[in-house]
Design a protein around this nucleic acid. Structure first.
Lengths: 118, 118
DNA sequence: CCAATCGTCAACCATTTGGTTGAATAACCG
DNA sequence: CGGTTATTCAACCAAATGGTTGACGATTGG
């Protein structure tokens, strides 16, 4: 009867693409212009633009146009609902922050031009 | 060079479908046979079988065949990596368990036959 | 003003996704 | 054995996804 969850649909499917996760990781460092986001990837600007729209639809980023450049800013609050949902399944234990730091370190030193192989 | 993250790909894309999330929620209560999982949904058994295979591929459930019935069991540990990844973006605040309980209560009283409209 | 830059739009394409049906396999029950 | 139950397989389909290219509209700077 009610229906809900479209938010979770959008967030999880946005997160399911490695390119988009890489973009979010980049934005964790600082806000970026669309062109600069696209730079490390071996993919057209239009493709990155689409990815950014998907992230924006999910609420994971906000894009603010200033002059001719559009700035992308991470919106971590959008992960709240999804995190809450997932935590419900994870036997309620505290999150291991060290694990995330380690993962992030590994991901940041990666060569994105090699992403999405075939 | 390295490549990784296929795990996150699989988990997030498994979670991006409301039918699959509903199945996981059902399994939170108890292990279930495939046919029983399928019962509340307005969708063929074969379709549910596919969903379960996707969940199994992501490691979110394990399926053990006993006789002619195949039991599905939630595997919450598979959410670990994804939870860790997401927590990294959520300004590191503690998880609100009450919010999850509330969400779950809402979701459990739902009519699944009304899922996936058009 | 003109040219270059930033980003999106539109059309197109191949692949994946989520569903269907009907037949096939396997195990159980009487 | 033979029928029923449980589940998957295979073929098929429509729609969504992720990418391309080229043209376009805005904005900026010389």
């Amino acid at each position: 009867m009610c229906r809900m969850s479209t938010v979770l649909d959008l967030v999880f499917s946005a997160l399911s693409d490695p390119t988009r996760r890489a973009i979010l990781t980049m934005l964790l460092e600082d806000d970026m212009a669309v062109t600069d986001v696209a730079a490390p990837f071996e993919m057209s600007l239009a493709a990155i633009s689409k990815h950014l729209m998907i992230l924006a639809d999910a609420g994971l980023i906000v894009q603010e146009r200033r002059g001719r450049v559009k700035w992308c800013q991470l919106q971590p609050d959008a992960l709240r609902a999804a995190t809450v949902w997932m935590q419900g399944f994870g036997q309620f234990e505290p999150i291991d922050l060290d694990a995330f730091e380690a993962f992030l370190a590994q991901e940041l030193c990666q060569d994105h031009t090699d992403d999405r192989p075939t």
